[in-house]
């Protein structure tokens, strides 16, 4: 059984869990995800690996309570175990072809860009990071990003931290400034957050012709390429986020389609398998 070895509250209704998972962490790389079941009647819920400690054999997840299953998870305390824990799933992120990268995290999407920021920092080419949240309280991991990022920019809807506005406002400023310079321009943006945010980033970077990667968070069941629930339309083709993703070229994603599918189980109270298209719900697939 995979036990919770550490748990802390990061923001209202957002918990960080450090979970003992030596088998999962062994081959895990940034960008991959896990699926867990809280108990024997639990549904299978996917979460991006936010951090890992290969020596300690632990995986860190940031989980926002958005429904029945995540609320059930939130009831667990250090020492408790989850019924099932499987991963790493999906393809790892490959940003090796890019030199000047901007990472954009909205709400709990922060959990997904953190391992990227850390990996790029460790590789000696730290990225610029933009974080967005509704307010100061909902910002997460700012200290960690301060350490790992080349520069950190923050936007909140109410202006209680950083600049008042959206992540796209900050990104636009960076892209504009970048345009003035002749060389070493921004060659990749990776954005993770609620789908409307990712769509807005995609629309913006398209104007600037900058390659953009998003981590998609559709509904999933098995996560291994069996059920087809996580299908998306990317570049006019049907792809599966669990085995072909979770990351895709943002300019190829059919956003209207993806956003419509996210709300499949919205009516069912206990059906919050996916994170909802809520402002602060970016990181849970």
């Amino acid at each position: 059984m995979n036990r919770i070895v550490k748990k802390r509250v990061l923001a209202p209704n957002v918990n960080e869990y450090v979970i003992d998972a030596p088998l999962v962490v062994k081959n895990a790389r940034p960008g991959q995800f896990v699926i867990l079941r809280v108990d024997e009647e639990g549904e299978r819920i996917p979460f991006t690996i936010c951090d890992m400690d290969k020596a300690a054999g632990t995986v860190t997840l940031l989980v926002q309570e958005v429904g029945y299953s995540t609320a059930k998870l939130a009831k667990l305390v250090v020492g408790d175990g989850v019924a099932d824990f499987v991963g790493p799933l999906g393809k790892p992120t490959d940003l090796s072809a890019h030199k000047n990268i901007v990472l954009v995290g909205g709400g709990i999407g922060t959990a997904v860009i953190y391992p990227q920021a850390k990996a790029l920092f460790e590789a000696g080419r730290p990225a610029a990071v933009i974080l967005g949240a509704r307010n100061r309280e909902l910002l997460m991991y700012t200290d960690e990003f301060k350490r790992a990022a080349k520069s950190l920019y923050i936007a909140t809807d109410d202006g209680s931290a950083g600049q008042k506005g959206f992540v796209t406002d900050l990104l636009k400023e960076l892209l504009e400034a970048d345009r003035q310079r002749a060389k070493n321009g921004i060659d990749c943006v990776m954005a993770v957050g609620p789908m409307p945010m990712m769509r807005a980033v995609a629309n913006l970077t398209k104007e600037y012709g900058v390659h953009t990667v998003v981590s998609m968070n559709p509904i999933m069941v098995d996560g291994t390429g069996m059920c087809g629930g996580c299908r998306l339309s990317v570049g006019g083709k049907t792809v599966y986020a669990c085995v072909d993703g979770p990351e895709f070229d943002a300019h190829e994603v059919d956003w209207a389609d993806a956003i419509a599918r996210l709300s499949l189980y919205k009516e069912t109270e206990q059906a919050h398998r996916c994170r909802l298209t809520d402002e602060t719900a970016g990181g849970q697939k």
Partner: peptide
């Protein structure tokens, strides 16, 4: 493995689901 779809118009509507899922 993966269920096949037909790439029909409307396949991403709510209520369209693979038999596997």
């Amino acid at each position: 493995g993966l269920p096949m779809f037909m790439n029909l118009k409307g396949e991403s509507y709510k209520g369209v689901i693979s038999a596997n899922e």
